[in-house]
Each structure stands twice: as structure tokens, then as C-alpha cells.
Simulated assay, not measured.
Amino acid sequence: MNWKRYSALVLPVLLLVGCYTAPQRPAEPAAPRQTTPDYDPASGGAVVTPAEEKEIQISAYEPAPAAPLTPLHSKAVGALLNTAQQQERNNDLVGAVGTIERALRIEPRNAHLWYRLATLRMTQGRHALASDLATKSLSLAGADVALKRENWQLIARARRATGDISGAKVAERKARMLN
């Protein structure tokens, strides 16, 4: 019975001890700034005085404009692209689609080939399929901003052709954001 009485007293004391924090000292004021010249390793060891320091300008980092990436493909795919281009000039859209599909079997992750197939499907009047293929190209485009912009423009035209005006406006807005 004593044990219960002591534990009822000890437990609150232990809880209070666990919550205790030592008093904090007030922070000391910061030391005044030195007016002596500082060593500047960027200038080859020259000394920068406080007066010169005021003249130094710092500008924000601006990345270089994104250059369109040239489509990289194998010789076989290049030959197939030439054949598809010739077939399209001869109005053989079915043959051109088949040729691009053969190229895609060789390089299925080539975003430029998917875009090319999307443009052919758009020319054939298969607008929903063209939009889907352009979306596939977008997913593979990586850092190629120009290709992404072309895909969004194609998606906008395809959606407008299917009557999806609000979807077309969204796609056009996304294309403009990439300019």
C-alpha cells in the first residue's frame, strides 16, 4: 500500500523535471563591421575596400535560351523518314504512316517520330488519334521546348477540329507559355 502512495507522488515530480529547461542567456550584441580591406580571391588576391564593395553589382542567374534539339536517330530511321517524306509528297499518306510506324518499332522513344505520326494522322482527318499521338510525343520530348510547343499547337488544332473548344484553348495557352 505504501508503494502506491509513493508512486502517486513520484510520477508528477518526474514529469515536471522532464519539462524543465535551463534559463537562456541574452544574446550578445553583434560585433561592429570591420572597415579594414578584405581579401578577394576572385580578383587574384587584390584587396577590396568597403568603398569599392558598394560598386560591385550582383545580378540574378539567367539561363541561356533553350535551343531546339535536333532529332537524333539512327541511319535506318533516317532512311525511313526520307521514304515517308517522299510518300507524303506523292499523297500516299497510308504508306507514309506505315513507314513512320516501322521507324517507331526501331526507336519507340523518339518523340520526333511520334510527332511526325501525329501530323500524318491529323492530315488524314483522324483528329482524336492525332491528339493522342501528340500527347505521347509530349511525354517523350524531354527538354525540347520547340517540339513541345509544336505538339501543343497540334493538340489545339485537333481538339478544335473535334469540337472541344475549351480543350483547344487550354492547349493553345500551354503552347504560348513555351514561347
Rank of each mutant, 00 (worst) to 15 (best):
P65S: 02
P65F: 02
A66D: 08
A66H: 09
A67N: 11
A67R: 13
A67T: 13
P68A: 09
L69A: 12
L69M: 11
L72C: 11
L72H: 12
H73G: 12
S74H: 04
K75E: 15
K75C: 05
A76D: 09
V77G: 00
V77Y: 02
G78V: 03
L80D: 00
N82S: 14
N82H: 12
N82I: 12
T83F: 04
T83E: 13
T83Y: 10
A84L: 02
A84H: 00
Q85G: 15
Q85D: 14
Q86G: 10
Q86L: 13
Q86K: 15
Q87N: 01
Q87R: 04
E88D: 04
E88L: 06
E88K: 05
E88Y: 08
E88S: 14
R89Y: 08
R89S: 15
R89H: 11
R89W: 07
N90H: 09
D92R: 06
L93H: 08
A96R: 00
V97P: 02
G98D: 03
T99E: 02
T99R: 02
I100T: 02
R102Q: 15
R102V: 12
R102H: 10
A103S: 03
A103F: 06
L104Q: 03
L104G: 03
I106A: 10
I106K: 02
E107M: 11
P108R: 13
R109S: 12
N110A: 08
A111S: 15
H112L: 06
L113T: 01
Y115D: 01
Y115P: 00
L117F: 07
A118S: 10
A118P: 01
T119I: 01
L120F: 06
Q124S: 09
R126Y: 08
R126S: 10
A130I: 02
A130M: 08
S131E: 03
S131V: 01
S131G: 12
S131N: 03
